[in-house]
Computed example of a mutant assay.
Amino acid sequence: MTRLAIALFAGLLFGAGLAFSGMSDPARVQAFLDLFGSWDPTLAFVMAGAMAPMALAWLLQQRLPKPLACDTFDLPGTTLLDRRLVVGAILFGVGWGIGGLCPGPAVADLAVAPLAAGTFVIAMLIGMGAHRITAK
C-alpha cells in the first residue's frame, strides 16, 4: 500500500507540475522549440528549475541503502551511447517538435483535450509496439 501511495503522489505531483509549468500545452512547447521564429523561453526556466530537485535526488539516492518502498534502486545498468539510443532520441525529439507533446504530457492531456492527445497517444503506443516487435 505504501508503494502505491508513493506512486500515486509522484504521479499527481508530476501531472500538476506539467499543468502548472505549461509543459502540457503543445503550442507553448512548439514555441519553445521554434528557435528562429517566435521563441518562447518559458520552458527553459522550467527545465532549469527541474535540475535542482533532480540533483538533490541523485545525492540523496547515493546516501540511501535502499529506496523507501522497494528493496533496491532500479538504475540504468549502462552508459552506452549507441546507434539505437541516438536514433531513439532523434525520433523522440522530432515527435516532440511535431506534436508538441511527449509521453507524460500526452497522457495528462487526455483529460483536457482527449481527441488531440488521444491521437498522439495511439501513435505513441503503435510506435512502442513496433519497437517491441522489431527489437527482438
Rank of each mutant, 00 (worst) to 15 (best):
A117K: 01
L43G: 06
G49N: 05
C102K: 02
P65S: 13
A5N: 07
G104L: 06
A69M: 05
V87T: 12
P26E: 08
L18A: 12
A116F: 00
I90Q: 03
G15Q: 11
R63Y: 01
L64D: 02
L18P: 02
D71I: 09
V94M: 03
Q62M: 07
L115A: 14
W96R: 03
D82F: 01
L64M: 14
G77Y: 00
G127P: 05
L13F: 12
C102R: 02
A135Q: 11
D74Y: 06
T119P: 00
A108M: 09
G49Q: 05
M47C: 09
A31R: 15
A135S: 14
L13Y: 05
G93T: 13
G17T: 14
G95F: 02
G11M: 14
L43V: 10
D25M: 09
A89D: 02
P41V: 11
D109E: 15
P114H: 07
G37V: 13
T79A: 11
M128W: 08
V87Y: 01
P114F: 04
Q62A: 15
L68W: 05
I122Y: 00
M124E: 08
A111F: 07
M47Q: 06
A108P: 00
V46M: 01
A106L: 05
I90A: 12
Q30Y: 05
T119D: 00
P114A: 08
R84A: 11
A48T: 09
A48I: 14
A52Y: 01
L85F: 08
R3H: 13
A7V: 15
L60A: 13
W96G: 03
A113Y: 03
A106W: 00
V94K: 04
A10C: 13
A55I: 14
L68R: 07
G11T: 14
P65V: 09
P103Y: 07
W39Y: 07
V86M: 12
L110H: 02
M1W: 12
P105R: 08
A55D: 01
L68S: 06
F32W: 14
G100S: 07
P67I: 06
S24T: 13
G77A: 03
L125S: 11
I122R: 03
F73C: 03
R3F: 02
L56E: 01
A57R: 05
M128P: 00
P26F: 01
A52C: 03
A44S: 13
F9S: 15
T134H: 07
A31S: 15
L75G: 00
F9H: 09
Q30L: 08
L125K: 07
W58K: 08
V107I: 15
A5S: 13
D71F: 01
G11P: 07
P26Q: 09
T42S: 13
L33T: 11
L35C: 04
C70L: 14
G100T: 12
Q62Y: 00
C102L: 12
A130C: 12
G11K: 11
A27F: 02
G99L: 04
A44Q: 08
P76Y: 01
F73M: 04
T78N: 04
F36Y: 11
W58R: 10
A113V: 10
L101P: 00
T72A: 09
P53Q: 04
V94P: 04
Q61H: 07
A111Y: 03
P67N: 03
F120R: 08
A117S: 10
A89R: 05
A123C: 12
S24K: 08
M124Q: 06
R3Q: 13
